[in-house]
Amino acid sequence: MPRAGLTPDLIVIAAATLADRDGLDRVTVSAVARLVGVKPASVYAHLDGADDLLSRVTQLALAEMAERAADAVAGRSGRDALAAWAQAFRTYAFAHPGRYAASHRPLRRAEALAGAGPRHTALSASILRGYAVPEVDHVHAVRLLGATIHGFLDLEAAGSFDHSAPPAADSWPRVVEALDAVLRSWSTSR
């Protein structure tokens, strides 16, 4: 029987908090149960196990990121929209490292479509329209943006840039400028 007051949403928030504090790899049903002061069976009464728990953290992270990115992009276009969009992800990655890591977990197609996936797609498309990237090329441009932005953020979070000067923060504007240049020249880049 589920514990009174314990809900799936509360459990997911606890798991996301644990991920941010200790790392995504430390999020287990047992660890979350300890954090909320219940036995693991109480967590299982609300969720379908560890994979369901992690999928829900992924969904939470994607929804939060979409909300922040949408707020950042609102009223902007072109380079300004791109920079604000990218910075929203960077700010989120620093504020919520465990949730950000969870956002990279693959979801089943139905889960992705039922969650924030379509919103991320719409945001990406709105940025690309500011560059006149042909719709037929959107998937390629989105992959480029994602690989560059999230690749940089993942390497930065792992400390991969810590061994050299200047700091990674100094490279970030150059990354955005390079993406802007590629997108501006997209139609002539073939």
Results as ranks from 00 to 15, higher is better:
P40F: 04
A41C: 01
S42V: 06
V43W: 00
Y44L: 10
A45N: 07
A45G: 08
H46R: 07
H46C: 14
H46P: 00
D48Y: 12
D48K: 07
G49D: 03
G49I: 04
A50Q: 14
D51A: 15
D52N: 13
L53H: 04
L54D: 05
S55L: 04
R56D: 14
R56T: 15
V57I: 05
V57L: 01
T58Y: 01
L60N: 03
A61Y: 03
A61L: 00
L62M: 15
L62F: 10
A63E: 11
A63C: 01
E64A: 09
E67A: 15
E67W: 08
R68V: 13
D71T: 15
A72N: 09
V73Q: 15
V73H: 11
V73D: 12
A74L: 11
R76H: 09
G78E: 11
R79P: 00
R79N: 14
D80Y: 09
D80T: 10
D80N: 07
D80F: 07
L82C: 12
A83H: 10
A84Y: 06
A84E: 12
W85C: 13
Q87V: 05
Q87R: 11
F89R: 14
F89I: 04
F89H: 11
F89S: 13
R90L: 12
R90C: 07
T91K: 08
T91Y: 04
Y92A: 06
Y92S: 05
A93Q: 00
A93V: 06
F94P: 00
A95Q: 07
P97S: 06
G98M: 08
G98P: 00
R99C: 11
Y100V: 03
A101F: 01
A101S: 03
A102G: 03
S103F: 03
H104A: 15
H104L: 10
R105F: 01
P106L: 09
L107W: 04
R108W: 12
R108D: 11
A110R: 08
A110K: 02
A114R: 03
A114Y: 00
A114I: 02
G115D: 10
G115V: 11
A116L: 00
A116M: 09
G117L: 04
R119Y: 06
H120A: 07
H120E: 12
T121Y: 07
A122M: 12
A122D: 14
A125P: 03
A125F: 14
S126R: 15
S126D: 14
S126Q: 14
I127D: 09
L128W: 12
Y131S: 08
Y131A: 12
A132T: 06
P134T: 00
V136P: 05
V136R: 13
H138Q: 09
H138D: 11
V139S: 15
A141L: 10
V142A: 07
V142T: 14
R143V: 14
R143A: 13
R143Q: 15
L144A: 13
L145W: 01
H150V: 04
H150E: 12
H150Y: 12
G151M: 02
G151D: 09
F152G: 05
F152I: 00
D154Q: 03
D154K: 07
L155F: 12
L155Y: 05
L155I: 02
E156C: 05
E156H: 08
A158F: 07
G159F: 02
F161Q: 01
F161M: 00
F161I: 02
H163C: 05
H163Q: 13
S164C: 02
A165F: 09
A165V: 04
P166F: 01
P167V: 09
P167M: 01
A168R: 01
A168N: 00
